[in-house]
Simulated assay, not measured.
Amino acid sequence: MARPIIADIDLDALCHNYAVARRIAPRSHAMAVIKANAYGHGAVACAKALAAVAPAFAVASLEEAESLRESGILQPILLLEGIFDTDELARVEALGLWQVVHSDWQLNAVLNYSPARPLTVWLKLDSGMHRLGFDSASFADRWAKLQAAGDRVRDLHLISHFASADQADPSQFERQWQTIESVRQQLEAPLCIANSPATLAKPRTHGHWNRPGIMLYGSNPLEGALPDGMSLKPVMTLRSRLIAVQTLPMGEPVGYGGRWHTSRPARIGIVAAGYGDGYDRHAADGTPLLVDGQRCPLVGRVSMDMLTVDISHLPDAGVGSEVVLWGRGLGVDEVARHCDTIGYTLLTGLLPRVPRRYLVP
C-alpha cells in the first residue's frame, strides 16, 4: 500500500478561477501565469486544462516554456524574466515565444539578432519595485530603439510589476501607478501590469493584458477579504491519513524537542506528512488540520515524514482517518499564517514525492 499523502488537483476549480479573472476584467486578455510548475500544481496539466480559454501563458524560464511546447501547448508563452543568455534567442524564435526585456544586455542581444520572423518583446518598466526593468527616465529611449528595429521586433508592450497591490496601505501602489501612467501616456503603449491582486482589486490597472497568477489556484492574494461577489475555489487539496494514535497522560511531551506538552490526558494522531513533503516545519502549535472533516490543532514540531495532531475531541478518529492539510474546507492562506509565511510558499514548496491526482471536470 502506498504512503497515503496525495495532492488532489481540481482542474474544474482552476477553470472557475480563470473565469473569475476574465469576468472582472472583460476588456483585458488574461494571460495565465503557470511558472514554478503552475505554483506547484503541475504546469502541463494546468495548461492543458486552460488551453481552450487562455490566449497565452507566462513562465519564468525557457526550460519551463520548452516543457509546455513538448506537451503540445500552442499558445504564445511569455518569458517573464526574458532570456538568461544570448544563445537562448534562437530557441525563443524557434518556439515562437514572447520575451520580456528588462536589461540593456538583453536589449542589445535582441537588436543584434537577425530573426527569420519578428520577435515579440515586452519592455519592462521599473515603476518602483526596483527589481527588474528600466527606470522612467531611460524607458522611452529603449522603447524607441526597439521601435526602430524594423522587422526584427513587433508587438511592443509595456510591462511592470506592483510591489504592494495586495496591501491596504495604497501609498506605494499609487506612486507606481503614477509612474506607469506617465510613461504609458507618453508612449501610448499597451499595458500588462495587473497581477492577481491588481486584477482582483484595482480595475484601473486592467490593461490590454492582465496576468493572473496565484488567484488561479484559489489563494487570496489580498491583505483583506476578496471584493464582494467574488469567490475563488481551492485547486489543490493536500490529503493524508492517520497512521497511528498515541494515548498520553497529562504532562507528556510530543515531538522533537518536547515543544508541546499535554495539559490533560490526550489522544494524539500521527499523520503521514512532514517537511519532506513540503509541509512547513515552522508550523506553530495550533495550526489547523481537518481530521475526518473536523478541525484539529497541530501539536509539536513537524518532522520530515510525520506530524502530530490533537484528536482528543474526536473519539471515533483513528488509524486510517482522512486528514486535510490544506485545500477544500481549509484554505492554504489560513495554514500559511500559522507558519508565518504566505500561501505561495506552501503551494510551490510541495515536493515531487507527493503524487498529484488530477480531477477533471
Rank of each mutant, 00 (worst) to 15 (best):
M1E: 14
A2R: 15
R3I: 10
R3F: 09
I5Y: 11
C15K: 13
H16T: 03
H16I: 05
N17W: 01
R23V: 01
A25L: 01
R27Q: 14
H29F: 07
A32F: 10
V33Q: 11
I34F: 07
A36D: 05
N37I: 03
Y39C: 00
A51E: 15
A51Q: 14
A54M: 07
P55A: 07
A60M: 02
R69T: 03
E70S: 11
S71I: 00
S71A: 15
L79M: 05
F84W: 12
D87E: 13
E93V: 03
D104R: 15
N108D: 15
A109M: 08
Y113I: 10
P118D: 10
L119S: 08
L119H: 04
L119K: 06
M129F: 07
F134R: 06
A137K: 11
G150R: 08
V153Q: 03
V153R: 01
D155K: 11
I159N: 06
I159D: 10
A165Q: 08
D166H: 15
A168M: 13
S171N: 10
Q172T: 06
F173M: 08
R175T: 11
R175D: 05
W177Q: 11
E181Q: 13
V183E: 04
Q185P: 01
Q186V: 01
P190D: 01
I193A: 11
S196M: 06
A201R: 12
K202N: 12
T205S: 13
G207Q: 06
G207S: 06
H208G: 03
R211D: 11
G213L: 10
N220M: 12
M236S: 04
R241G: 01
I243G: 06
Q246H: 15
L248A: 11
M250W: 00
E252Y: 13
P253Q: 00
T262I: 13
P265Q: 13
R267K: 14
G269M: 06
G269F: 09
I270M: 09
A273W: 08
G274A: 02
D277H: 15
Y279M: 13
A283H: 07
A283V: 03
C296T: 13
L298W: 02
L298D: 05
D305F: 03
T308N: 11
D310V: 10
D310S: 04
H313K: 14
A317L: 03
A317R: 09
V319A: 07
V335A: 09
D340W: 09
I342Y: 12
L347Y: 02
R356E: 02
R357F: 03
Y358G: 00
